[in-house]
Design a protein around this nucleic acid. Structure first.
Lengths: 146, 146
DNA sequence: TGACACACGTTATAGCATAACGCAATTGAT
DNA sequence: ATCAATTGCGTTATGCTATAACGTGTGTCA
């Protein structure tokens, strides 16, 4: 009883652990570390970090979750449910950027074609082959800066 | 005998530990973790991570060193010696971006006004006050992609 | 049915970062 | 001159983040 659980939705079917981890992130209003997720899921039988990390790896691969490098933490993708930011599927919309409020922890996910384009141009000029691009702005959100 | 050592150069005078850490980074041809730096400096009397982290904190503050968030590692700033990427001094040139080769480890530092501008516009529109922006492209450099 | 792929669980360990203590030296105002 | 404030330093201990290595169960498919 270890295989992915089929769901009526689109998107890759998630296993039990993957669903649990995703749900926790999806309900959160701020990024969560793997260990915080682990603690939230102790009641569901989670005992070890690897259970979380393995689920996160898959969710990242599916494009359903993002990793915030400057925080060592994770957020659910903010895009409309079905079509998310993946690149492998052919329908991705390029690199995603994040604005992270250092006061309230809120994260805004956005995307800018022009930025993508400029970075892509630089890479092309330098013959650099990008695999993954990280853009994170840390600061104060409108509400907190007031 | 603990105070900064005066030097003939411009830029803030560095203490002994700060100089040692900076020299290690400056000579390296790839990013280094704090613990790798520590190991390189055992012969100079370094015994504990904090000795490295404290020096790094200052060097980051001076803008002489950058932290690569996606690597948990550090590099010496690639700009011409004197005027570096700081923001506090008034002569900074905005956000710096990094292209990191996942094969050879080489890091290229660059910056792009247009990208800065676009991200700044987004922030302005959202009333977000940026404190620090991270841009890191991971992939393969020209030499390694060949 | 047997090889394979994949998710899972567990234990142990590696790697990155900081807290909290106390001492030494410098600065600078009084 | 001296005292308070600041800054750098060294040490020990601890916490947080991430992965290695092992073995199990299950579903797929030739």
């Amino acid at each position: 009883m270890n295989a992915p659980i089929s769901t009526p939705t689109s998107a890759p079917a998630l296993t039990k652990n993957q669903s649990l981890v995703f749900d926790v992130l999806d309900r959160a209003d701020a990024p969560m570390s793997a260990y915080t997720i682990l603690d939230r899921l102790r009641d569901h039988g989670f005992r070890a970090p690897l259970q979380v990390y393995r689920a996160l790896d898959k969710l990242l691969e599916f494009g359903m979750v993002h990793r915030l490098e400057s925080l060592n933490a994770f957020v659910a993708c903010a895009h409309p449910e079905s079509e998310c930011c993946g690149k492998g599927h052919g329908h991705g919309h390029g690199t995603v950027a994040f604005a992270i409020c250092e006061s309230c922890g809120h994260v805004s996910e956005f995307h800018d074609h022009e930025v993508d384009h400029r970075l892509g141009d630089w890479a092309k000029a330098k013959n650099f082959k990008p695999a993954k691009t990280t853009i994170e702005i840390r600061g104060l959100c409108g509400a907190c800066a007031a």
